[in-house]
């Protein structure tokens, strides 16, 4: 049974309005589901710029969750918080039964082995070949022999559909290939959570479908919990089990169906903007003061 099925059953009316969630009360159908990542009352400010002011959200175990929201609403920041790359000013983040916001860096280093991250531009090391890049996590954190590493790396390359790229430098790859290499690197340590930042930005429509298929296949094979930042509404509708919508400094979340049927005008505006036709930009004005 997939998460999508469960969501459908757990929502008898099918018309539950998605309301803005307050701190500690993520108003979502996923309340009953086991959450893999649970963020509570996050506050984070860069100087006067308050990025989050009491944001809460949960991400279900084994699901594909998509975070959507306007540019600069803090989607990448949320991923980095979950990866313990930055710390919130206030609030807790539970990953499984571990609270990560109070960890010292040495412990965070160990914690991050549970997490893979696919950065927006790939974050491949420019000075190393593609092979060296993907082999690096194994070289650093395992005692595998050179031969075992090579086998493992080629297995990952195969899984993401890459061939004969070992000796290339990241600068010599196309955008789609970079993403695949980065995906191979993120997955090679078999993490339990995969964080993906805008996997489809800068890709042509066919490459988008290819990467989508890769991610779905990956989830199928490994059962990894995926948290995606995804601007692309049609693509989100195709692959997401759960959508987390960042508006203002809060979140709205629910299944794809719930979001599609949502009457919240900001959600509507976002979804409508992805379809052909006129939109009314005024819905986005004043959202900060409203929340």
């Amino acid at each position: 049974m997939t998460v999508r099925d469960r969501l459908g059953e757990g929502d008898p009316t099918g018309a539950r309005p998605a309301t803005p969630s307050g701190p500690g009360t993520p108003a979502t159908i996923l309340d009953e589901e086991p959450a893999h990542v649970d963020a509570l009352g996050l506050r984070l400010a860069y100087g006067a710029n308050k990025v989050f002011d009491g944001l809460s959200c949960r991400f279900a175990q084994g699901a594909i969750s998509c975070i959507i929201g306007a540019s600069g609403s803090g989607k990448s920041t949320l991923l980095k918080l979950i990866a313990c790359l930055i710390k919130p000013d206030f609030g807790d983040i539970w990953v499984g039964d571990q609270e990560i916001t109070c960890m010292p860096e040495s412990q965070a280093m160990v914690f991050r082995r549970r997490i893979g991250m696919l950065f927006q531009a790939g974050a491949l090391l420019d000075s190393m070949t593609v092979f060296e890049n993907v082999a690096l996590p194994l070289r650093e954190k395992t005692r595998l022999t050179e031969k075992e590493i090579e086998e493992e790396v080629h297995l990952q390359f195969e899984a993401v559909g890459l061939d004969k790229v070992d000796k290339l430098l990241p600068g010599e790859l196309s955008g789609g290939m970079r993403k695949r290499v980065a995906l191979a690197r993120a997955m090679i340590t078999r993490p339990e959570i995969l964080l993906v930042d805008e996997p489809f930005s800068g890709l042509d429509p066919i490459a988008v479908r290819v990467v989508e298929a890769l991610l779905l296949d990956l989830r199928e094979r490994t059962g990894v919990t995926m948290i995606l930042v995804n601007h692309d509404i049609p693509s989100t509708m195709r692959i997401a089990d759960q959508i987390v919508f960042i508006v203002g400094r809060r979140t709205l979340s629910g299944s794809v169906e719930e979001m599609q049927q949502s009457e919240d005008r900001r959600v509507r505006a976002f979804i409508d903007a992805a379809s052909p036709g006129e939109i009314d930009p005024s819905v986005w004005q004043g959202q900060e003061s409203e929340l």
């Binding site: 991050r112 991250m117 974050a123 090391l125 690197r185």
Partner: peptide, 10 residues
């Protein structure tokens, strides 16, 4: 984000 990438690989 290459430095963050390294941190993610511990």
């Amino acid at each position: 984000e290459q430095l963050d990438g390294l941190r993610m690989m511990s």
